[in-house]
Amino acid sequence: MKIGITRFPGTNCDYDVEKMVQHFSHTPVWLWHQDKFDIQSVDAVIIPGGFSYGDYLRCGALASRSPVMSSVREFAEKGKPVLGICNGFQILCESGLLPGALTRNEGLKFIDDWSSLEVDNPNSFFGSRLQKGQTLNLPIAHGEGRYWIPAEGLKKLHDHQQIWLKYKKNPNGSMNDIAGVMNEKKNVVGLMPHPERALALWMGGQDGMEFL
């Protein structure tokens, strides 16, 4: 499978995601922020984490307006799988491909830690082996991961089973402990934790292996 990986100025988990993709014997394809791409050329897209455009203005805001994202939008509209990790999740929310917004952590500080998560609804493409209610341990590392959505939006998330992952112990004040969500069609998913940092015992855990 060919998996496109977007690169923006300030993306810094690009090589980590590349390693993860290679780990599963898929072929990584770099998608440069200034270029649109042929949506037939890849089978899935991952938007890695980092500090695209230095997190200036708002996290993910500037990256979400780039040419590559207009192709990602087209790609997603065709129902193809898109995963956003951390800053990638923020970019997807900013671009409107995922509902809600990610705001400053409640404690105002950047948090790096391992967090315990529960699968609220499994996704059929990314993490297809995960079961509802299953517990995962993944690292988090973010300053703006507090998920927020208006009340009617939250109701919709529940109604359409769009909540993907929840924190068992809320680290950042996220609404309803949300750590990851899906769009209504379930082909676009985003999460704050980093599965690419948990692929082996020496890394401290290997639950990230479940995501591809």
Binding site: N12, Y15, F110, D112, P139, M203, G204
Partner: peptide, 16 residues
């Protein structure tokens, strides 16, 4: 202190 630092970016960290 160290919880404010990203200790794992680069996916090489074994002991933080």
């Amino acid at each position: 202190i160290y919880k404010q630092y990203d200790q794992r970016v680069g996916a090489r960290t074994c002991k933080d």
